[in-house]
Nucleic acid binder design. Structure first.
Lengths: 173, 173
DNA sequence: TTTTTTAATGTGAGTACTTACTTACTATTA
DNA sequence: TAATAGTAAGTAAGTACTCACATTAAAAAA
């Protein structure tokens, strides 16, 4: 990965996040990155290839975040770490994750599998904790945490800390 | 609202939902509606005006859906109706609501106020039902139901009925 | 180590096509 | 008769992408 290649990716991420994928032209990306437009196509084949590179990075980062949860054996800790997950994302990464949410709707693709590792880890934890419907409980919590993540990134949640402690209490933690 | 005006709105909704706002050109909308392109600009001023008309319609429809809940006095029924809300949306309206979700991310705007009537009704219900943190409970449920709606519209929820009865049980209904 | 060859990285001007929007005009209705 | 609804043919500015060429870096040969 050359220096200019990284600059292209960084500019594309920034602009796609700010304006949207379709609203951002390859020439804007090139200008922002300080490279010739042709270079984008040399490295990423076409505009969609550029998008895919960013999307792939998102999936990798997500799995990194999940790794800590999936490897935890104590079921109480699995639930705690899952709940805390959206709240530990630093503000500096909001732009990046905002793009991931945006693209979920902007381009058609199956995204449900991306949260599957989390749902499975939670289901197992809820089984161990003798919840009545562990699978449903896990699916519901995954969905809810996804929504909380979205609200945080959009800065539309009034009091994040309150929500976090409310949730921890709700799940007996 | 003339016949052609309605055709334009219907076509725009359909195409914006399918391809996205930025990816849909005004000429495509005009062709799909069987109308000259200029007419779009006569009636809606510009492309964004067309979008705003659709967005306004979405907010109205949402308030219609909320009306039944807000007017309910029995707190148990408020919670039940809120939980059932995403599940009663007919499949024929999925395209319409999918666009509303999509636009939430595609154009920058404050959407949090749109679900506020629901949150307030739920908060009041949870107060009456002696929940410990009624406000948090209401915000959380609103957020979760929004996520469930999104999952339904994207057809990414394996078993909707199971999720519904799980939720009703969870809230003692 | 120096020279030569090969391949990868990068450019800038061009391509054909599409974009949102305008304008000058006609048809329809109140 | 005056406003409103509607059209067809424009416009200038983008659009994603290509191509012939220049620069740089790595590998191979001397």
């Amino acid at each position: 990965m050359t220096e200019k290649q990284e600059k292209i990716l960084k500019s594309a991420l920034e602009l796609f996040a700010k304006e949207g994928y379709h609203a951002t032209s390859t020439s804007k990306v090139a200008n922002n990155a300080g490279v010739s437009e042709g270079l984008i196509f040399r490295h990423f084949k076409n505009k969609e290839g550029l998008l895919m590179a960013i999307l792939k990075e998102g999936e990798n980062k997500l799995n990194e975040l999940f790794a800590d949860i999936v490897m935890e054996s104590d079921p109480q800790e699995v639930v705690r770490k899952a709940i805390e997950l959206p709240f530990i994302v630093p503000e500096s990464e909001y732009e990046f994750w905002g793009l991931q949410y945006k693209l979920k709707w902007e381009i058609e693709m199956d995204y449900s599998h991306k949260t599957e590792p989390l749902t499975m880890a939670l289901a197992l934890a809820f089984v161990k904790l003798n919840y009545e419907s562990p699978q449903q409980e896990a699916e519901f919590l995954t969905l809810s945490l996804d929504a909380i993540g979205a609200a945080l990134i959009k800065r539309s949640m009034a009091n994040a800390d309150k929500m976090k402690s409310f949730l921890l209490k709700k799940y007996g933690l």
